[in-house]
Amino acid sequence: MIGPSRVAELDMPGAAIEGASTRPAQSYWNESWERLRANRIGMAAGILILIFALIAILAPVFSAVLTHFQPQTIDLSQTFSPPGGKHLLGTDELGRDTLTRLIWGARVTLGVALLTVAVSLTVGTAVGMMAGYYGGWLDDLLMRLVDTVLAIPAIFLFILMSILFRPTPVSLALIIASVGWGQVARLVRGEVLSVKQRDFILATRSIGARHLRLMLRHLLPNVLPVLIVAASLGVGQIILIEAALDFLGLGIQPPTPSWGNQLTNAESYFFHSIWLVNFPGLLIFVTVLASNVFGNAIRDAFDPRLK
């Protein structure tokens, strides 16, 4: 039996260093946040993404107040106007305002990326957790499924599926997530396998916690850091994939503007209207760059071992 005296005994090591200057105890999340905040470049990248997200959300306001154009308004008297004047970033082959289309395109591009990450994480975590937690034949079955999905070169799978589902922003996100979940599942399963061995899980089980409670209340919080890191590192790649599919004509279909599909026909006019190639490409580049940098900062903050 553990009586009061034993507890006092266990406290002894603490007493020995009394008086020594100690750092106030901080939660894991607080500590990670402190580390993240100290990373200036990482924070700048994060703020840039936040600004882009705000612009995307407020797209209707911007096109009403700033550009005074709608993304799909065709004006054949204004085709290929260079940047400046009424059209800040020029117009395209149908006289549509480039800046307006880029702002609305941000909605599509960032929205698809967000949804893709959300779906991949949800499905992947559920599958990975079940496989890792229950083990046995379920583990074998689920992991072979993951192996299979990940063995098919993603780009071919995307091509097949974008013929199957006429891509809208939602279906495009699902198409990209159909590969993403597999990577998340592998990651989560690995994490669960190691956390499962720890004593606190045994303790929780011994006081009669149900499977679902164990998974959601005890395993999930321990897997969360890995998930956050995976998500923040994945966003950039997803934006690149989405842009490439749009460019190939397999993603978001015109006239809905996205950053990628604004480059689809670029080759037929880019030698006289260079801005039509520069701006969408630069936006994709900067956004992906910022999310990669921010992703790295998140990883360094949440998982210092990996630095």
Partner: peptide, 11 residues
């Protein structure tokens, strides 16, 4: 790592 391949190709 961040540059879209198709865009770099176009440029």
């Amino acid at each position: 790592f961040a540059v879209p391949q198709f865009w770099m190709g176009l440029i």
